[in-house]
Design a protein around this nucleic acid. Sequence first.
DNA 1: AACGCGGGGTC
DNA 2: GACCCAGCGTT
Length: 355
Amino acid sequence: MEQDLLCKIPGPLLAWYDKNARVLPWRQDPQPYYVWVSEIMLQQTRVEAVKPYFDRFITALPTVAALAEAPEEQLLKLWEGLGYYNRVRNLHKAAKIVMENYHGQLPADFETLLTLPGIGKYSAGAIASIAYGIPMPAVDGNVLRVTARVLASEEDITKEQVIYDISSRLQKILPRDRVGDFNQALMELGALICLPVGKAQCLLCPLRHLCRGYEQGIYMELPKKAPKKQRRIEDRTVFVIISQQRVLIAKRGEKGLLAGLWELPNTQGAMDETQCREYLFLRGAKINKIVSLGKAKHIFSHVEWHMTGYGVYLEEENFPWEDAVWASARELGESYALPTAFKAYTGQIKKLLCE
DNA sequence: AACGCGGGGTC
DNA sequence: GACCCAGCGTT
């Protein structure tokens, strides 16, 4: 094989990183627990979105021990709005394992990190290199985009083989004295300069002189990715059910979409007010009044909810709904984790309670 | 290898 | 609208 083009990256990349690295909360003091929490939060999530969540999480749960002992309700509340809620459930499981099997110390070993729930190849490499200086690559979407462009590679970067190939080539060229910085620098370049789809800032790029994608004028077409599956649309009718100045909320199941979070009672289909009244009556509701709350849309990665909302005033709190509890407005804000999907309706609760 | 799993930013 | 993002676990 020819001398790997990638081996020319570290020098100029690290020089650039030394001048341009962002100041990030988990970078100030890269102790293993902080790096771990940040890497889990950063999975498929932008730095700017993570920042406030990270600070709040670390303040509430400063150590692995505190995390392991925290009730799941508190964890979901701290994660509320960040998405991919299985991440925090896995983080919790892993913290318990770390307490029981590793004396509360996050293992300083790539293969062992890989066995912990929520830690895959990328995260194991990131934690090992950043927290412990272990020479393992951390190949995420940024790294794949940067390397595909530098190499002018038209391979589909979602293929496992491509990720494996880039990983092994990067491992060979990791500067042994700065492995964590190198991995972060590659990602930082992807996040600040080598931006996706037509936003690349090549004139500011420290790798421009060796980038074949730039040289050949094809960087804007890279990286190649297989098209994503189309989202399906789901119609749902959402109820803000009120009685005695409290709102009915229900706990979702332990598996699937928004697992373990609380939600406004809702059901399949887009009902009009008459259907809505009929449906609730058949379930045993004694309805005082129904008001329309309008339509709302929420887009998940794989499904789109088209919601029709109603405010429903009951004569009494006696109304059977599976896994439901009555909550005051204050409790709703402080104690229960509700997904963003219901924001259009939860935002109207205060007003509805005044009527 | 394909799929389910959030939410927000950008053009 | 479409695309993308410091991915992982399940099937």
